[in-house]
Design a protein around this nucleic acid. Structure first.
Lengths: 112, 112
DNA sequence: ACACAATACCTCGCCTGTCAAGGTATATTT
DNA sequence: AAATATACCTTGACAGGCGAGGTATTGTGT
């Protein structure tokens, strides 16, 4: 397994929502853009990715529609909803808190 | 559930190992020290804590022994092993990488 | 012409970690 | 006598990640 797969767990939704903040996009491309951002270090597994899409759609954070490609494989595009944008902002906030908390917790120096 | 329980997932082992780097300690006290460090914001649930102890002991990161208290409830003390110290250092390294990676992945700005 | 890789989607079932809910036993406080 | 705090533990359910499998279309290499 790669370096940090378990550490990323719980951030999948945030990562996907972030990719949809600027513009609609489809699964395969979203995944590639994630790989590019980490220089190939990290990639969402397809099963994880599509599971997350279902979860996010069910909870109203994203909606989906089929693209009208004349050629090539069909693409399902995802669009972030207003509620999804709110969710993203709140997840970002949680991450900031969690980051500080973890840093506090994994250091060896005594309290204070 | 509290703010960031799912985001901490995967760091439990690191958090526990960190608490044992300086000195041996027992479960209940370890958990209290974790609560104190976050000002009560976060606490490991007991089931999670003891599951983690089993896991860490099985993988050779910690060893355990019963304290010789003359009074009060019995205490099982945990001691970090050499291999546990190595593991801790490597987990810290992974955290640094993961932290940067997540920061890259959850931002909305374009690549580069 | 034919095989293979790449694009693009999807599901099933296992594994692992978390945790609610329950339990035990001792010591102290009310 | 009852409640609280200390201190340990297990069981079973649940959720997320992902390996392994699948479908269909288009482009590339020989």
């Amino acid at each position: 397994m790669s370096i940090a797969s378990d550490l990323i767990r719980g951030h999948t939704d945030t990562i996907i929502l972030a990719r949809l903040m600027d513009s609609d996009n489809y699964g395969y491309e979203i995944n590639k853009s994630i790989q590019e951002r980490t220089g190939g270090t990290y990639e969402l597994k397809e099963a994880t990715l599509y599971t997350a899409f279902r979860r996010l759609e069910q909870s109203g954070c994203i909606s989906s529609y089929w693209g009208d490609e004349q050629t090539g494989a069909r693409r399902r595009y995802y669009k972030i909803t207003e509620s999804g944008r709110d969710k993203y902002e709140s997840l970002i906030g949680e991450w900031k808190i969690a980051k500080e908390m973890i840093d506090k917790l994994i250091k060896t120096e005594g309290t204070q």
